[in-house]
């Protein structure tokens, strides 16, 4: 097995085994999708209008929930030093960790979204657009989040600062993602798919390099 795959499967196993990240994120997502209608009221017409945006915000927040431990856990028990010494470059390691995070949170959140969209009375085409947009866009959440996670990995209260530095950077993803749902609802082409895909691709390709730099800066001190 290549070092890349070894790290990927290890991270995947950890996220499932600890009962940790993966399941918690899904529970959080489901709770957001429940609380918003309870706060706003049961008007399904109104909820259908807001659904795309709310489920996108909920999914992004849910994915961020487990991100602060992405590098921190390995930093605290010393395995990050071992990963840095391994034949796998830090860039490769960061990419493996981002991929593992997406597979354990982004993908399950995407798969849960059609079920939760029932609460918002989304039409069939809107549900498909929402699921597609999350499939395309959640890698960007994991990737941009990994940058934040690498910068805050040595902080005791990193979990509080991470959303503050990552969420402003995720503004385009949320807008384009909800824009895809809007396109399905109004029938007016707006190009959101292309923009979201471009953003997600660029973020996924560039962020391993930035995250590796962040890890290096933290390990050097």
């Amino acid at each position: 097995m290549t070092p890349f795959l070894a790290l990927l499967t290890r991270d995947l196993r950890l996220s499932v085994r600890e009962g940790g990240g993966a399941v918690l994120a899904l529970g959080f997502f489901a709770l957001v999708a429940t609380l918003v209608p309870l706060g706003v009221g049961p008007d399904l017409n109104l909820l259908a209008k807001m659904g795309g945006g709310i489920l996108w915000v909920g999914a992004a927040l849910a994915a961020l929930l487990s991100l602060d431990r992405l590098f921190q856990a390995d930093y605290e028990d010393g395995s990050l030093d071992l990963i840095a010494l391994s034949p796998l470059s830090l860039e490769g390691a960061a990419f493996a960790k981002i991929a593992a995070h997406w597979l354990s949170t982004g993908l399950p959140l995407t798969l849960l979204s059609p079920i939760l969209s029932v609460f918002f009375g989304l039409s069939g085409s809107a549900v498909i657009a929402l699921t597609m947009s999350l499939a395309i866009g959640t890698p960007a959440v994991s990737a941009v989040g990994a940058i934040g996670a690498s910068l805050t990995l040595s902080l005791r209260r990193g979990g509080l600062i991470l959303p503050l530095i990552v969420l402003p950077l995720l503004v385009p993803a949320v807008m384009f993602g909800a824009g895809m749902v809007l396109e399905a609802q109004t029938g007016l082409t707006n190009g959101a798919v292309g923009f979201l895909a471009a953003f997600s691709l660029a973020a996924s390709l560039l962020s391993p390099f930035v995250a590796a730099q962040g890890v290096r800066l933290n390990l050097a001190g």
């Binding site: 910068l151 040595s154 990193g158 503050l164 950077l169 800066l217 933290n218 001190g221």
Partner: peptide, 30 residues
């Protein structure tokens, strides 16, 4: 909000030199 995140990160890292480098990365990503 980008400014606030940058300031919060600076204040959270104790070692000044390390904070400078890490926040520089954040500023560039921003």
């Amino acid at each position: 909000f980008l400014y606030l995140g940058y300031i919060a990160l600076w204040n959270a890292i104790e070692d000044e030199t390390r904070a400078a480098r890490i926040c520089a990365v954040l500023a560039l990503v921003g």
